[in-house]
């Protein structure tokens, strides 16, 4: 058995963008799936709770869950470009979502679909197109339009622009932010691209091997990263400006969750590793009202 997420506590406020960063296999997507209860067996939530505006998501009946999904929380998946059905038109896929949740006539749903496409910067005539007739960026816009269709309060975006070219990524992110200003939804933004996250997120959480190792306001995480893993990650991206110097990144390999050590999961790759790291799992310590990190070296510094 693999523990994909281990004792993670997070809040997302209304209208906020929370970024969640980490390497592949660190559990960031599993977390996103859990919030809308999209995980499938054999995955199970063995402990913990998920509350959405006070309601317990984990105890919802299938019927309530269907109401909850997409009306309240929608998801833009990682391979969003390929999550469209290739054999039916864009229009059919959009009205399918609308009619599954709302009682509206096909004509009305179609009209709503056209408006949606326009909001994401596509021409209304694209309703007639098939996915293969659109470029990757356009397909991504369609998927965002579908996520927006029912005006959810939270959109979970799992690596929404990873497969896109940087210029297209920029266009889509700019549009998304205009839409966010207009509709006021919250975003849970999951990505491995810390630079992009630093630009768009209000707060950032860093995950390593299923654990949340640092959480703070974007500026805190970027300017005063406290966890050695966060520091290493930030030192892994060459910059466009600034001096051209050798960066060192993080030594070693990502942790295999089938073979986890006692104590801190980051010990094997950490330069600051000392005795307690080999035996005790570090807890999150509070560094500022908004900033927390889980590292024995920090706890040591705070207490003595």
């Amino acid at each position: 058995m693999v523990r994909a997420i281990d004792n993670v506590n997070l809040n997302i406020k209304a209208g906020e963008t929370l970024g969640l960063a980490g390497e592949s296999g660190c559990g960031k997507s599993t977390l996103a799936f859990s919030i809308s209860r999209l995980h499938k067996a054999p995955a199970l939530i063995s402990a913990g709770e998920i509350r959405y505006r006070g309601r317990d998501v984990l105890s919802m009946s299938p019927r309530t869950l269907r109401q909850f999904r997409w009306n309240e929380v929608s998801v833009v998946f990682q391979s969003a470009m390929n999550s469209l059905n290739p054999v039916i038109t864009i229009g059919e896929q959009i009205i399918d979502v609308i009619q599954a949740h709302r009682k509206v006539k096909t004509k009305e749903a179609w009209r709503q679909g056209e408006t949606l496409l326009q909001t994401v910067g596509l021409h209304a005539s694209r309703m007639e197109s098939f996915p293969h007739q659109l470029s990757g960026g356009m397909r991504q816009r369609v998927v965002i339009a579908i996520a927006l269709a029912l005006r959810p309060r939270l959109i979970i975006m799992d690596e929404p622009t990873t497969a896109l070219d940087v210029v297209v990524e920029r266009e889509i992110m700019d549009e998304l932010y205009q839409l966010k200003d207009e509709f006021g939804f919250s975003i849970l933004f999951i990505s491995h691209d810390l630079s992009l996250m630093g630009e768009i997120a209000d707060r950032i959480g860093i995950m390593y091997a299923g654990k949340l190792v640092e959480l703070g306001a974007a500026s805190e995480v970027f300017e005063q990263p406290q966890h050695p893993y966060t520091q290493g990650l930030l030192n892994s991206f060459p910059t466009i400006h600034g001096p051209r110097e050798r960066l060192n990144g993080i030594p070693g390999q990502p942790l295999n969750l089938l073979d986890t050590p006692e104590g801190c999961y980051f010990q094997a790759r950490c330069e600051k590793c000392f005795a307690p790291c080999l035996t005790d799992d570090p807890a999150l310590s509070t560094l500022s009202p908004t900033h927390q990190a889980a590292c024995h070296a920090l706890a040591e510094r705070n207490t003595g």
Partner: peptide, 27 residues
């Protein structure tokens, strides 16, 4: 210039003006 302006930079808050480029013109 467009390519460099599109590269994400932490701290540069969502404000770069990219509108001068013809966005939706297909490649």
């Amino acid at each position: 210039q467009l390519l460099l302006a599109a590269v994400p930079q932490p701290g540069a808050q969502k404000s770069r003006d990219m509108t001068q480029y013809q966005h939706k013109a297909d490649i």
